[in-house]
Each structure stands twice: as structure tokens, then as C-alpha cells.
Design a protein around this nucleic acid. Structure first.
Lengths: 157, 157
DNA sequence: CAAGTTCCTTCGGCTATCTAACTAATAGAG
DNA sequence: CTCTATTAGTTAGATAGCCGAAGGAACTTG
């Protein structure tokens, strides 16, 4: 087994852990990964337009419509017509939505964060440098990457 | 922006690049990421049981049945009843399937492999060590990770 | 041999996703 | 100011992936 295989295996473990986290999350929060990701985006500012959510998640607007439908049905967000441009709709976080976001079990991130913080200064720096280097090697430089460890936003052509 | 955010962002870029690769692949090979992943697994030995494929991909057997249906329809694999245990079916790679696997554009992997190989010995070792460390921090130790850079055991493309 | 177990498939039902077509509203060119 | 083009969002119809439950066929075990 070559070294490149070793590195690919490690990468795959990382991705797999994230996938599993998504499933766990979905189960615990009663939301799917995609739904939760949309909710997160709305939660950043408290509101967001479907267009912007679609761009952030890299999916079509139609997809967001149905996703938001589900969030609305769960009363996690509301659709508020925009005052400035009446073509626009503001998907707005509800108090319940805020609750769900706050309560969301981010076990994976917590675990990672804790382990990360236990590292020494130079170890942290080194991990960041290496991860960024790997990301570059995969040519993922121009990606919209929020510091949130989730699945579900796949960029499309 | 804290260091942990930096590291999460880098992780996210890595995952994103892989997702994009999956899409690209799907388009070029005329297969979805999940289908391709199943084909890859079958291709390793030339055959595999649905049960084993399901385990490898972390999905139910029912899912594999429909996935294999599609591969069979495209004549990439065949279902051969097992001689030893007639409950089992061997999903067997066809010549066409082998062709598709060989022709598959593994651009991302190639790119990564090339960049990786250009690194010095100690850099390679250091990257592997770091990736493995991160994987451990995410608690993904006991994952079946083949040295193939694919997504597709997601639950939602 | 009968009962339980295993492997696979079938069935019904979700969710996510897309494209195309449609409605409503704004922006721009005359 | 009006007509057209563009933009935001939704709706409709389709495909893919996924699951759990139920069922049939073939092993295993007592």
C-alpha cells in the first residue's frame, strides 16, 4: 500500500465521519442534512432569500423552494415578502428555528474542537497548513466554505 | 476568525472538492456517484455480493438491489447465481463495466496524486500523519475506507 | 424434518434534485 | 411612459437514492 493510498484513506475517513455526522444530526434534530444546512444559512443573518440560499448551497432555486416548504411546515422559518423588491421573499428564522439551531447536537464539531484545542500552538498551525495544502492539491481553492462542518451543499455547474 | 475555523474551512474545501469530483465523474461516465461507487467495489475483485456492497457503502440491501438493477440495465454488471450458496448472487463485472472503470476520468485523483508525488519524502509522511490525526479527532477510526477518493455513500445526492 | 436464519428482491413511500414552464415585479430602451 | 427583457420565486413532472417491511428461496441447526 503506497503512501498516496494512505493519504486517500485518511481523507476518506474524514469524509465518512462527516457523512455519519450528517445522519446523526438529521435524526436528532428531525431534519435532513440539506434542510439543516439551509436553516443554518438562514440563521446566519436571521433571514436570507431563496436565491442566495441556492447559491450558497450550489443547488437550483427550485430545490430551495421545496426545502423551504419543509422548513415552513415545521415552523422553523417563515416567508416574508420583501419590502424593497417585491419579487423577493425573505426566508426568516422563527424563534423555533433559532431554538433548533441552538440545540442542534454538533457532537462531531464539539469533539473535533475539543481535541483541536488541546493541541499545542504549533501543532494547530501545522494541521491548518497541511489541510490547506491538501485542499489546494485537490484544487478546491475557490470554494465557498463556511466554518461549519456539514454536508449537503454540492456545487453544480 | 479562529484557528479552529480555519481548519474547518480547509476540511470543508477538501470535502467539497470531492463532491464536485463525484459530479464530474457521474457526468463523464454516464453514471451517478452512487452507481459508480458500486461499480468500483464490484471492480475490485471482479464480483461482489449485494450484501457486501451494502456493507461497504453503508446503505441497505434494498438500496443496492435498485442500484445493481441500473448497472445491469446498462450491461456493466451481470447477476450470477452463486454456486456455493444459492441464496447469494454474485454481481459480476462485465467487459463493458471494466471498460467504463478503466476509462473513468479520475481527474481529481490524478491531480492529487501528481501533486502528492511531487512532495518530498518527509512532506508526504507529514501529510499522512496529519490527515490521520484529523481523522482520529473526528472519531472516524473504525471506518471501512478504501483508497479511492469518492463520495457516494451519502445519503442525498 | 421443522424452525429459525440469511440473502436477496419487491413494494410503497420519503427526500433531494433537476429542467422547463409560469407568474409577478423590476429595470431599461425608446 | 410603454414595451420588452431580466430577475425572483414557484409549480409541475421527472429521476435517483434511500429506507423499512414483507416475502420467497436456500442454508443451518436442533
Amino acid at each position: 500500500m503506497s503512501r498516496i493510498d494512505d493519504s486517500l484513506i485518511a481523507l476518506r475517513r474524514i469524509m465518512r465521519a462527516t457523512e455519519l455526522y450528517g445522519k446523526e444530526l438529521a435524526q436528532a434534530a428531525g431534519l435532513t442534512a440539506a434542510q439543516f444546512r439551509a436553516l443554518q444559512i438562514v440563521g446566519e443573518k436571521g433571514w436570507e432569500t431563496p436565491k442566495a440560499i441556492a447559491a450558497r448551497m450550489g443547488v437550483s432555486q427550485a430545490t430551495i423552494t421545496t426545502l423551504v416548504d419543509k422548513l415552513v411546515r415545521r415552523e422553523l422559518v417563515t416567508r416574508e415578502p420583501s419590502q424593497i423588491d417585491r419579487r423577493q421573499t425573505n426566508v426568516t428564522l422563527s424563534p423555533i428555528g433559532r431554538q433548533v439551531l441552538d440545540d442542534a447536537p454538533d457532537a462531531l464539531q464539539q469533539k473535533y474542537a475539543r481535541a483541536f484545542e488541546d493541541l499545542s500552538d504549533w501543532e494547530q498551525a501545522q494541521i491548518i497548513a497541511t489541510l490547506e495544502r491538501v485542499a489546494s492539491m485537490l484544487d478546491a481553492e475557490d470554494i465557498d466554505a463556511s466554518p461549519v462542518l456539514t454536508m449537503g451543499d454540492i456545487k453544480r455547474h
